[in-house]
Amino acid sequence: MTQHLLETARDLPAVIIERTLRSGQIVHYEGNLVILGDVNPGAEVTATGDVVVMGVLRGTVHAGASGDQSATVIAFRLQPTQLRIAGYIARSPDGETINPNQPEIARVKDGIVTIEDFPIGGERAGKN
């Protein structure tokens, strides 16, 4: 069973960073990146795989930095200055922004960066 789960997993190394990234701090990783903390405005996070932020993502983020369009960005609070996936660049809208009080996921769908709620537990079952 475990082996079966692993076969469907995306085979990239991952690293966990246990701190908040502040303005001017940069992290780049060839693989998946997990941050246990916030990413503040002015900080930059890039990874060739997925980026998961267990905190508030307010800085700049680039997932799939070497061109992987299936890469995703997940954050407890997704409020990035700029969000890139592979070659696609998205930014927060000018003026009023809605900040839903829950985790969200960003991915490329039909050539557009889309951001959706990332529901927990049973609600997600079968969707991913």
Binding site: L21, R22, S23, G24, Q25, N40, P41, G42
Partner: peptide, 12 residues
């Protein structure tokens, strides 16, 4: 605040 955040990172 942006600069303060930068400085806190450098201090740490």
């Amino acid at each position: 605040i942006r600069d303060a955040d930068r400085v806190i990172g450098l201090l740490e």
